[in-house]
Nucleic acid binder design. Structure first.
Lengths: 117, 117
DNA sequence: GTTGACCTTGGAGCGTACTCCACCCTTTAG
DNA sequence: CTAAAGGGTGGAGTACGCTCCAAGGTCAAC
């Protein structure tokens, strides 16, 4: 799969994918003419990258996780562990949001919410 | 309150506070000698800034919320509306996280989560 | 054999959020 | 009077994550 099709399927620009290759987030071998050739599983991988980014992981962290997965003896098991870890992060973040929400709700009735606390 | 004490109480560096002043996130009047003088409520405000940041708001968004508050400092009604708006944003963000959580939970059990979907 | 879509590279530039630096002034304690 | 602690400015630099551009090679269709 060449970069244009990958970009279309993953929903990002070619420039972004070239940038990701530069930082080691994706790998491609080259065709005889020098064009990048990506394996098809790069599509779900890039979608996963987007998801992980939305959860607040930096590209460096995501790249490291990818390496961990490649090194793992049982990929499915490692992925499940990784997802479980992310779910915990989501739960923590939701709890934080809930706390802020409660705080704002409580302050909404006061005269000067920012001065309180 | 001068910048050093504020920095200590808010848990950030003086440089960060000067930067925040530059981008309009905090305001200070000046003493006769040119030193910045911050009102005491800047401490909870900066703590609030940190919280909002952790929850994914950009400094620009936080600054805009602060301006909205300054534009209607006396109207409890307006304040309630602003907080309600923020709570809506939080709810939307929580819903998004909830969807991601569900997606990850569903994938965690599959043989090859990245290939699924 | 030329057009046009697609690909290559290197490098510049941008927005966000700081972080550090040099150099200089002010205040306070001894 | 001096030294230390604290404050001021402007500007450069950093890290991240892209984004855009120029100049040029490749390939299939007409």
């Amino acid at each position: 799969m060449r970069i244009g099709e990958l970009a279309a399927q993953a929903g990002m620009t070619k420039d972004t994918i070239r940038f990701y290759e530069k930082v080691g987030l994706v790998a491609a071998h080259r065709l005889a003419n020098g064009y990048r050739d990506f394996p098809p599983e790069t599509v779900p991988w890039l979608r996963y990258v987007r998801t992980a980014q939305r959860l607040g992981f930096s590209l460096a962290e995501i790249a490291r996780h990818g390496e961990d997965l490649r090194d793992a003896p049982d990929t499915a098991e490692a992925l499940s562990a990784l997802f479980a870890e992310k779910i915990q992060i989501i739960d923590a973040r939701m709890a934080e949001l809930g706390a802020l929400r409660a705080e704002l709700t409580a302050r909404a009735g006061t005269g000067c919410p920012l001065r309180a606390s």
